[in-house]
Amino acid sequence: MPSELVHKFMRIDHLPHIWCAGCGNGIIMRDVAVALQELIDDPESGVSREKTVIVSGIGCSSRAAGYMDFDSIHTTHGRAIAFATGIKFAHPELEVIVLTGDGDCSAIGGNHLIHAARRNIGLTVIAFNNDIYGMTGGQYSPTTPTGDVATTAPYGNFDRPFDIAQLAAGAGASFTARGSAYHARETTELIKQGIQHKGFSLIDVFSVCPTYYGRKNHKGGAVEMLAWQKENMVPASRYYAMSEEKRRDKIMVGILTHNDFPEYTQQYARLLERAKKAK
């Protein structure tokens, strides 16, 4: 019998999961489960299990929708946000959570991401960002750092990477944040805030892929990669207390943008009312 949390919120007949030893995705999926548990246990949050839907696309990350014991849908590559938009638009009362990866949401699904952000539709998108296409064998993704090697970049990738949280913020997302597999408690808190936020929320969570990314780039195994996150990623409270010079080499863990823009399905409901009155 696993822990109460896992027993309650995951499909234990599908566990242990297929992710590699040390894969950060398992840590992030637990963060999502803890965030949902805390919200469901809080009657004031308005979040219930019955009204929560989990949507994923394709990739290592997207296996998570199959492991989490909620109403869930595992969709096609890059289209998780498109399916989630349809679900939210048909049933605005639902809490729609998208579990996606860096390839799924910022390459093939990049257009869906920016337009969902621009519309500010009330989805919560959690990107399991491991800097690589793990499931298909380690091709470089839009977030692979410049210079790193991948099976499709044996001499080093010369593309500049996307910062998914900044990309979503630039596209108009009203809540954007960055977490990491190492910073599990902080990330859980950010996921909770993202779910409670009424507009489009994106939490870019840095995962670790020791198998196809870490090992090939001499960044070590899971332990060394998480130790890198501990060293180089700094929670917002500490980050903003640092001098500008010290901040330069660090990555902030916390909220990037938090705005109160009108939410898309609420706008649509208002439009319907207006149209009915005009009859």
Binding site: P2, S3, E4, V6, L15, G26, R30, Y182
Partner: peptide
């Protein structure tokens, strides 16, 4: 340990 175990193999009860 429970916080970061990717496989849910260790926890507090």
């Amino acid at each position: 340990c429970e916080l970061r175990c990717p496989d849910y193999a260790i926890w507090l009860e």
